[in-house]
Design a protein around this nucleic acid. Structure first.
Lengths: 153, 153
DNA sequence: CGCTATCCCATGTTATCCCATATATATCCA
DNA sequence: TGGATATATATGGGATAACATGGGATAGCG
């Protein structure tokens, strides 16, 4: 099972290419498609990345809906229509489409954030702000982690 | 397993030809018929495209209806009766029949929308509205994709 | 014969491939 | 232990192929 961990910041070259962190690639070697699938986040100014196999899984689940039903149509349009399929080259780099670069404000560097089954791609400066706001939120609302989980790192 | 992803907008030239996106073609190379199967959507002002193999599966699903039921008859007529087989040329272009062009208001550009097992072809401007409505619908109705391959929807 | 679709080739743009280099970490042997 | 050599990763850039598109030539069909 794929598990994306840790944070890496790589350079976006003038061709629009960026190296996918090697440890992320290692999680994705056994799939039919050599690359990643990206979406725009509908919450933050960042991109969300998934394994191609994860998309296949969603495709299979959508088959449980009635063909031509309104739900199936809406979901398929919102999910698959918005997805972008990016193969990597021999050196593990992908080409970020300009729309996605603009959307997530990736000017010269891209921060890959592992989030388990998925990962996110941020502009480093935007991500710093996001990380800080998350920290503040946890602090002010006095959030805690429910018992049973492993504890702080 | 075929999986149509992302959206592509291509030009319709004065001969009525459109390039089928290369990534879509790649999903369809292994079939006996070199081309796509199209018919008019029963819901939207767009065209629906399928892999030939998926048409066979639809046929199988239709068998779940009573052989002479009114619904089976209606669906079979709407889907199979309306279907058009379009072979592509050496460069991956298909000729859109004028009835289909008029039905879906494809004047000079055509937007191919990946929807997993199938894809749709829209007039770009019409699709913009559709995309927004699909997003809203997913959001407001709180739609989710069922977990696992089980039956719940 | 005239219309239209199919085939074929040309073109510009852009992505992909491939190799070179830098840097860091790991490995090995004296 | 030290120092030199390997391995993996990230990055830069030139050569090449792929793709979308235009248009002419040819073949089929009415």
């Amino acid at each position: 099972m794929t598990l994306f961990l840790s944070t890496f910041t790589n350079k976006v070259d003038k061709k629009g290419r960026v190296s996918v962190p090697a440890s992320f690639r290692a999680e994705l070697t056994d799939q039919s498609f050599q690359g990643i699938v990206l979406f725009r986040s509908n919450v933050h100014a960042c991109l969300e990345g998934f394994a191609y196999s994860y998309m296949q899984e969603i495709g299979a689940r959508l088959d449980d809906f009635d063909l031509f039903s309104a739900e199936q149509d809406d979901l398929a349009t919102a999910i698959f229509g918005d997805a972008v399929q990016l193969p990597w080259d021999g050196d593990g780099r992908v080409m970020l489409p300009t729309e996605l670069v603009e959307f997530s404000e990736l000017n010269e560097k891209a921060t890959f954030v592992g989030m388990g089954r998925k990962f996110q791609i941020w502009s480093p400066s935007v991500f710093e702000a996001r990380r800080e706001s998350a920290r503040q939120s946890v602090k002010s609302k006095n959030m805690t982690i429910p018992k049973g989980s492993g504890g702080d790192k």
